Amino acid sequence: MAKQEFLLTGTGGQGLILAAIMLAEAGISAGQNVAQSQSYGPEARGGASRAEVIIGDERIHYPKVEKPDFVLTLSQEAYKKYGLPLNEEAVLIVDNSLVTEVKPRSKNFYSLPITKACRTHFGSEQSANVVALGVVASLSSEIPWEHLRQAVESRAPKGTAERNLKALELGWQMGMEAGKVMNSGGNNKLSLDQA
């Protein structure tokens, strides 16, 4: 697997650090070299948060993401802070339920209703981080489904494994659909009825 750098951004309390840990564990169980780190504002809940994962078969010399291949933003503040500037090859995924002002500079831009789809399917936003994880992993096409599923199952908070596995499947399907639309030259914005 070629090295891929992932940057998951949002606000504290959205569960992106847990999603990054799950992504890292999926990479480890797939036999890859992995580095994972995170940072968040002093106000933890509600402040900007950032989680980074590097996965690949080559040695990782620096544990921080320098040139992200994938950037996920789940808040307007995170988009402003981390979504720009990106190189035009980077994949930028924004949650259009929460990020409404976007000026994409990447040609690989996906606007998906991640939080809204989670709320619609599960009655709350509690597993939106796992839906987002499914989207990112499916678009990367390098993270094996079974390893991702195992990581979610083992890391899901007690009593939430079944819902989180369904959330992972929902996100994986959203990512697959968005990738198909993008590859066919269509609009990269996925509506809820497509999710």
Results as ranks from 00 to 15, higher is better:
residue 138 S to N: 12
residue 139 L to F: 09
residue 139 L to G: 00
residue 140 S to I: 13
residue 140 S to F: 14
residue 141 S to Q: 13
residue 141 S to N: 12
residue 141 S to L: 11
residue 141 S to R: 14
residue 143 I to D: 02
residue 143 I to W: 06
residue 144 P to F: 05
residue 146 E to S: 10
residue 146 E to L: 11
residue 146 E to I: 13
residue 146 E to N: 14
residue 147 H to D: 02
residue 147 H to L: 00
residue 147 H to R: 07
residue 147 H to P: 00
residue 149 R to Y: 14
residue 149 R to I: 03
residue 149 R to V: 04
residue 152 V to Q: 02
residue 152 V to R: 00
residue 153 E to Y: 01
residue 153 E to R: 07
residue 153 E to S: 06
residue 154 S to V: 05
residue 155 R to L: 12
residue 156 A to S: 12
residue 156 A to V: 02
residue 157 P to E: 04
residue 157 P to L: 03
residue 158 K to S: 14
residue 160 T to D: 00
residue 160 T to K: 05
residue 160 T to Q: 08
residue 160 T to S: 06
residue 161 A to L: 05
residue 162 E to S: 11
residue 162 E to T: 10
residue 163 R to H: 06
residue 164 N to K: 01
residue 165 L to N: 11
residue 165 L to A: 08
residue 166 K to H: 04
residue 166 K to F: 07
residue 166 K to Y: 04
residue 166 K to P: 01
residue 166 K to R: 11
residue 167 A to K: 08
residue 167 A to Y: 12
residue 169 E to C: 02
residue 169 E to T: 08
residue 169 E to A: 03
residue 170 L to V: 02
residue 170 L to A: 00
residue 170 L to D: 00
residue 171 G to V: 03
residue 171 G to M: 07
residue 172 W to A: 00
residue 173 Q to T: 06
residue 173 Q to D: 07
residue 174 M to Y: 08
residue 175 G to N: 13
residue 177 E to Y: 10
residue 177 E to F: 03
residue 178 A to P: 08
residue 179 G to P: 14
residue 179 G to A: 14
residue 179 G to W: 14
residue 180 K to R: 15
residue 181 V to L: 15
residue 183 N to C: 13
